[in-house]
Computed example of a mutant assay.
Amino acid sequence: MTHKPSGAQPPAHRFQHLRDRFMASWAGLVWSRGRELELMHRAMGFAALGFLTLVPLLIVVAAADPASGQGFARWLGQALGVSPASEDEVGRLFGVPGAALQRTTAFGLAALTVFGLTFGSVVQTGYEKVWDLPTARWHTMWRHVVFLALLICFLLAFVNTPNPLNSALGAAIGVLADLIGTCAFFWVAQRVLLGGRVRWCALFPGAAATALGLLGLRIFSQLVFSPLIASNTVVYGPIGTVLVIQSWLVGVGVVVYGGAIIGRIIHERRVHRRMAEADEE
């Protein structure tokens, strides 16, 4: 009759120990908060609503901008970071630049604006869930207008800002400028949408995490989404490009809400550390 060594643990206990260590780690905490927030479902809703309500409005705004000669396709192509060939496929999907503005009536533009404001409401709800805040009252809807205006200004600045130098140094400076601008936008956007209910210092880590996450998503897009656009266009036609863009928007939603989750965790740990130091004193 054999006996197990006294120090050995059953596989189930080892698995539970590893699981407990993972859940206590940074990654486990983010995973747990993401499940509570239903992160993937919210990201898919973010992508669907963004494509249906925000994209038509941005197409019209881009057509009205003389500096962005290629319209919304140029915005999207630069945000995706795709190759010139894939950017051409995106351009074919959205048609002739400027045509949307010529064919849009005042009533149609007003309807697009209302639909675009719905997108701001969805982002606000996600941020409120991240910070466990009650739903804002109806009279705070003006904040959605401010958020939409900030988003349009941010996209215009993002597209129309050239790299300082056509070199590795210029590319690095451009990436740094994009990071600072993106961080500043999401820092202000969170403050606006949350109605000032969360302090600036608490919102900054989330804005920084979102900016870094979008930079990572852009690199991922260059490696994955750019060739996918070319191959899907051959296999599925224009709908293949739509599928890739929709997948990218899901990734943006994950980064936006996931960055806010990481920011709250950083803020909570910083507060707990300060309280522990105060108790020791």
Rank of each mutant, 00 (worst) to 15 (best):
W200Y: 08
L49Y: 04
F15M: 11
F94Q: 01
V250W: 11
L80D: 01
P11D: 07
D132Y: 06
K4I: 09
A99E: 13
V175M: 05
W187N: 00
R191A: 10
S221C: 01
A172S: 10
L212K: 02
R270L: 10
I262K: 09
L169Q: 04
G28V: 08
A67C: 03
L217V: 05
G195W: 09
A67W: 02
G206C: 02
E277F: 07
C183R: 05
L165F: 14
R273F: 06
R218E: 05
L217C: 05
V242C: 10
E38Y: 02
Q78K: 10
A8L: 12
L101P: 00
H272R: 15
P84S: 07
L133I: 06
A209F: 13
L93C: 03
E87K: 04
W131I: 02
F51N: 07
R264A: 01
T135D: 11
F119N: 02
V250C: 10
W142P: 02
H17A: 15
P162G: 07
L212Y: 02
A209S: 14
P5Q: 11
M44S: 12
A172E: 03
H267N: 13
H272Q: 14
H272T: 07
T135P: 00
L214I: 09
L249T: 06
V188F: 12
G195D: 00
V198S: 05
Q124D: 08
I262V: 15
R74L: 14
D178C: 05
L109Q: 06
F72C: 03
A276E: 14
T182S: 10
G126P: 02
A136W: 06
G98P: 08
G126L: 02
I229H: 01
T118C: 14
A184D: 00
R137A: 12
R199G: 14
A62K: 01
V242R: 14
W248L: 01
R92K: 12
F119H: 12
W26Y: 09
S221I: 03
F115N: 12
T140R: 10
L176T: 13
G108L: 03
F51C: 08
M275G: 01
F15G: 06
A177C: 01
L176D: 01
V61R: 10
Q9E: 11
R103E: 15
G98S: 07
Q16S: 13
A209I: 02
T135N: 06
H272D: 12
W138N: 05
G213S: 09
